[in-house]
Design a protein around this nucleic acid. Sequence first.
DNA 1: CCTCGCCGTGAATACGTAAACATGCCTCTC
DNA 2: GAGAGGCATGTTTACGTATTCACGGCGAGG
Lengths: 333, 333
Amino acid sequence: MVTSQDVARLAGVSQATVSRVLQGSARVSPETRERVLAAMKQAGYHPNAAARAMRTRRAGTIGVVVADITNPFYPQLLEAVSDELDRAGQRMTLWNATGPSEGGALEAIREGAVDGLLFTTVTEMSKPLEEALQRNEPVVLLHRGLDHIGCDQVTADNVAGGRLAARYLVRAGHERIGFLRGPQSASTALHRERGFRETLDELGHPLPPELVRPGDFSHDTARAAMRELLDRPQPPSAVFCANDLTALGAVDGAISLGVRVPEDVWVVGYDDIAMAAWEAYGLTTVRQPITDMARMAVRMLIERIEDRTLPARRREFPAELVVRRSTAHTPAS
Amino acid sequence: MVTSQDVARLAGVSQATVSRVLQGSARVSPETRERVLAAMKQAGYHPNAAARAMRTRRAGTIGVVVADITNPFYPQLLEAVSDELDRAGQRMTLWNATGPSEGGALEAIREGAVDGLLFTTVTEMSKPLEEALQRNEPVVLLHRGLDHIGCDQVTADNVAGGRLAARYLVRAGHERIGFLRGPQSASTALHRERGFRETLDELGHPLPPELVRPGDFSHDTARAAMRELLDRPQPPSAVFCANDLTALGAVDGAISLGVRVPEDVWVVGYDDIAMAAWEAYGLTTVRQPITDMARMAVRMLIERIEDRTLPARRREFPAELVVRRSTAHTPAS
DNA sequence: CCTCGCCGTGAATACGTAAACATGCCTCTC
DNA sequence: GAGAGGCATGTTTACGTATTCACGGCGAGG
């Protein structure tokens, strides 16, 4: 391994001067700088990350935790996060945590292997997370939040999104509306459901309990649930789904029974993932500005890494209804 | 920060003993071990990753490079890679490299920020990659390979997969077969095309040049290309696509023109991503054992990190045709 | 002409861990 | 009973970098 010491010898300067050139900011005469840069190049020098991290107490890496990377929503989120981190010159360590096993990420921040953590899928205030927050470790919650926790959070207005869906379906004249829920541990699922239910109540069309099915944000569970709903004597004429993956499963459940979307049943999703726009589904959905949210979260995290004394901040982004083919312009019933 | 020194003081032993307890293997009396463990717990000690990395010359992290994380194939691959790395106690740093910008990953390995690299989407022998191989850095190519390079590689038999598709379509009686290509820089695209073309030639049904369209493994490009093919006076009766994302785009292109799959045109994809099995598409495709390949690649990389003198190894996995609804059991023409 | 201060550079040190080397005691053997 | 050897533990060092402190020289001001 080539060290700054080797470069120093080659350039006929001290190791300190090499370090100064590396940092750029120090005062080094132009001639010396040139000589050192040439020596670095000639020797094929690259500063050692571990030594640098030890000295500066910065790993140059941030950790990102997602719950299920095969849910297409997260790759879209990750793409934006990754871009923004590149721009900031930070590396990204990723955890695909099934269940409440953010343990690895929290261990990493305690060990100093990452400078901060971006959680996209918190579900609860786990013991290690509580510890991390108490120790004032840089943590930002993106997408899913924790209601009563003082911690940086970037979310979308999921209550408003649920309201949009409810108003849209009721105004279109639907009388029997169904709902495919998300996991009750996800704030997104809860808020979307709350907005949806409240608005249905306000409009005098409360959600019939028999048309509500539990779910876990997975395609297969949603598909099965939709088949159950459609097999009922009085099936729903429209179904709102807690996220797009659920909605795609619902559409597939309908197709599998020969039930047509939207002629026989409308389906509305949530997130506006790329696939929602594809012809085979043409899914009406509530869009949240994934990319903007991701960028914001990364910036907040980097700010917090640089200044841990900042007050906890919350940013909420607006939701927007995107109408496509899965809901016709005239009611189905 | 709590250091092993602090723990040592607290337990009334030397720092070396704390380190020995940490390593587990050293000889420490049971009583001392207990005392040290208790002190660690009481003090809330967690070993510093940077210092450890500097001392052991191991980062405990491996780097993974993908080209386009929004292509659902890669999340599936990453899920398996991530699982296997967890099992090995390694962290994963991810690069989502658009274009030939594996630069970040190669810089990271030179700096020692990662112990090895897993490339899932190499396209060419870039300068930095060549350097890394010359320096005998631990590098494994997964999914896409480089034909004439002596380097660990885990691929599927894409030539055989292309043959399977060709034989299937010809035996089903198709006379006008089209092909949506992948990027010519991807070994997978080239090999699939080679197997497909060669077999069509052997069977006396060479690919008509006017039914071949370039592509980039993206949904939108494939959709547009499919519309061009279907708009021709003599459209194809079956289209083979260089990967599943391309095939899904092709199906959507057909739908957008009111052309039915499989009644009017058959579509065959490649990869068998999860969505291929969903009802809306029901895509016939060539499966490659993504999970097995990922596991193998991770194990190979870890072996190589532990012993850089190993000879370069290649593992090729078999391909398998999965027939679904996008190809009916009787020819369309 | 002398002194003060600044600028460029070198020397020395600290970061936290792992491991090589050193030490003292206890036991076993002849 | 004395020497040898093993075992538990302490002392010391090295890893590579960033930074603080020290120093010599030179220019400016009185």
